[in-house]
């Protein structure tokens, strides 16, 4: 027993917090090194997805895809951003509770974080459903000189937009290619948007599962200040997921 305590002391002195995971040669806890490396690689992964969306945005419009502004509402996503920020607060409060051996607080704040994560996922499902149920029309304008222009018009703007287009192009042939739903396959906007936000939503869902496992461990009495790293690791991942939404909210919805 004394040896075990000595091991714990040695591990803590080296920056470790968990059991059975000795520090690296740098004196760092190997689980945390692994998670920070993973987070670092995830930052590159999500930057690639966001960059792809941004560079293909003009191409989507040139091909007569839907205008993102016609479909992406700021109000809903601002609420989702608030929910994730709130969940980051409850997550650090859960970590604080476990570090101070506040068992009730740990369970309460972990539960709150899970609930807020589920609310975020519910909001995302609502947004995806809304996009799928709405449609857009690609209007092909052929000028007398043969020049072709494609314009994407949201279904709910079609009636007001068509007379404008006819007035702007009096001699052109204007053809409506018909209604298309905003899905993963009908436009570059759909492909890049659903891939990016879908991956983020998947990360949130994984976070909810991870936190639920930690909550069950806490309910079984397996979580205390002695292994608070278990909560800290889940928290680091959760905050990173929030961080990604900070970027998506600004670069995709606000700009």
């Amino acid at each position: 027993m004394a040896q075990a305590v000595a091991h714990d002391q040695k591990e803590h002195a080296a920056g470790g917090h968990g059991h059975g995971h000795p520090p690296t040669s740098l004196g760092l806890n190997s689980r945390k090194v692994g998670l920070w490396t993973f987070i670092s690689s995830e930052a590159i992964f999500f930057t690639a997805l966001i960059s792809t969306y941004l560079v293909l945005k003009p191409r989507n419009i040139a091909l007569g895809g839907p205008e993102p502004q016609d479909f992406l509402g700021i109000t809903l996503t601002a609420i989702l951003a608030f929910i994730l920020l709130m969940s980051s607060l409850t997550m650090v409060l859960a970590l604080h509770a476990v570090e101070t051996d506040n068992v009730r607080g740990t369970r309460l704040w972990l539960g709150a974080t899970i609930l807020l994560g589920l609310m975020f996922l519910g909001g995302q499902v609502y947004e995806f459903n809304k996009l799928w149920s709405e449609g857009f029309h690609t209007i092909v304008i052929t000028e007398p000189d043969g020049k072709v222009e494609r314009i994407g018009v949201a279904e709910h703007h079609l009636e007001e937009e068509l007379p404008h287009l006819q007035a702007e192009h009096p001699n052109a042939q204007i053809q409506d290619t018909g209604r298309k739903p905003v899905t993963w396959t009908t436009s570059l906007f759909g492909s890049t948007f659903f891939t990016m936000t879908g991956f983020h939503g998947t990360h949130v869902a994984i976070g909810v599962v991870w936190l639920s496992i930690v909550l069950v461990m806490s309910l079984r009495g397996a979580i205390s200040s002695r292994n608070s790293l278990t909560v800290e690791m889940a928290g680091l991942y959760w905050h990173f997921v929030d961080l990604v939404w900070v970027a998506i909210f600004t670069l995709i919805y606000l700009i």
Binding site: L26, L28, K32, V33, W36, T37, I39, S40, S41, E42, A43, I44, F46, T47, A48, S51
Partner: peptide, 16 residues
């Protein structure tokens, strides 16, 4: 070291 790990990823991502 954790700051270095994270910052490295952010710098690579930003440059990319």
């Amino acid at each position: 070291w954790f700051t270095t790990l994270f910052t490295t990823g952010i710098i690579i991502a930003t440059l990319m």
